Lab assay of single mutants.
Amino acid sequence: AKPPKTVTVKVEVTNADGETQTRTVTLTNLPKDLKPGDTVTLPETGQTARIVEITP
């Protein structure tokens, strides 16, 4: 079996106070056609994050 493909992405997350924070997260099994501006759900927090940058 192939190991899951991990991708490092820079995302913007809005916290409970309405502040936008930029975080770098490593995600696995992202859709192939994901692009900056799309939103993903962070598995560890369940927060919705907007992708700023994808590092191949």
Rank of each mutant, 00 (worst) to 15 (best):
A1N: 11
A1S: 12
K2S: 14
K2N: 13
K2C: 11
P3I: 05
P3M: 04
P3C: 08
P4S: 13
P4G: 13
K5S: 12
K5D: 14
K5L: 13
K5P: 15
K5Q: 12
T6V: 10
T6H: 12
V7G: 03
V7Q: 10
V7Y: 15
V7N: 04
T8G: 02
T8A: 05
T8I: 14
T8M: 10
T8Q: 09
V9Y: 11
V9A: 06
V9L: 14
V9H: 00
V9Q: 00
K10T: 11
K10F: 07
K10I: 15
V11C: 03
V11F: 07
V11G: 00
V11R: 00
V11P: 00
V11T: 01
E12F: 09
E12G: 01
E12R: 08
E12I: 12
V13L: 10
V13Y: 15
V13S: 03
V13G: 01
V13M: 07
T14L: 11
T14A: 05
T14S: 06
T14Q: 09
T14E: 06
N15W: 05
N15F: 09
N15S: 10
N15T: 12
N15D: 11
A16W: 09
A16K: 10
A16N: 08
A16Y: 07
A16D: 10
D17Y: 11
D17K: 12
D17N: 12
G18S: 02
G18W: 01
G18I: 01
G18Q: 02
E19T: 15
E19D: 08
E19S: 15
E19A: 11
T20C: 05
T20S: 07
T20G: 03
T20Y: 07
Q21D: 08
T22I: 15
R23Y: 15
R23W: 15
R23E: 04
R23Q: 07
R23D: 02
T24K: 04
T24D: 04
T24W: 15
T24L: 13
T24M: 13
T24A: 03
T24S: 06
V25I: 14
V25W: 08
V25G: 01
V25P: 00
T26K: 08
T26H: 10
T26S: 07
L27M: 09
L27K: 01
L27N: 01
T28M: 11
T28S: 11
T28N: 07
T28V: 12
T28F: 10
T28L: 09
N29P: 03
N29C: 09
N29K: 08
N29Y: 10
N29R: 11
N29Q: 08
N29A: 08
N29I: 05
N29E: 06
L30I: 14
L30N: 06
L30E: 07
P31E: 14
P31F: 14
K32T: 12
K32I: 13
K32V: 11
K32H: 14
K32C: 09
K32R: 10
D33W: 14
D33G: 13
D33Y: 09
D33L: 09
D33K: 06
D33E: 12
K35S: 05
K35Q: 09
K35A: 07
K35H: 06
K35L: 06
P36W: 04
P36T: 06
P36G: 02
P36H: 04
G37A: 01
G37R: 01
G37K: 01
D38E: 04
T39Y: 15
V40A: 01
V40E: 00
V40W: 15
V40F: 15
T41H: 08
T41P: 03
T41R: 09
T41A: 05
T41Y: 15
L42N: 02
L42H: 02
L42Q: 00
L42P: 00
P43L: 07
P43F: 07
P43M: 07
P43H: 07
P43I: 08
E44H: 10
E44M: 09
E44T: 09
E44Y: 08
E44L: 09
T45Y: 04
G46C: 05
G46Q: 05
Q47R: 04
Q47H: 05
Q47G: 04
T48R: 09
T48V: 14
A49S: 02
A49V: 11
R50F: 09
R50N: 03
R50C: 04
I51K: 00
I51Y: 01
I51Q: 00
I51C: 01
V52S: 02
V52M: 08
E53D: 06
E53T: 07
E53I: 04
E53G: 05
E53S: 13
I54D: 01
I54M: 06
I54R: 01
I54W: 04
I54N: 02
I54K: 01
T55E: 12
T55K: 10
T55S: 12
T55I: 15
P56F: 14
P56I: 12
P56R: 08
P56Q: 11
P56M: 14
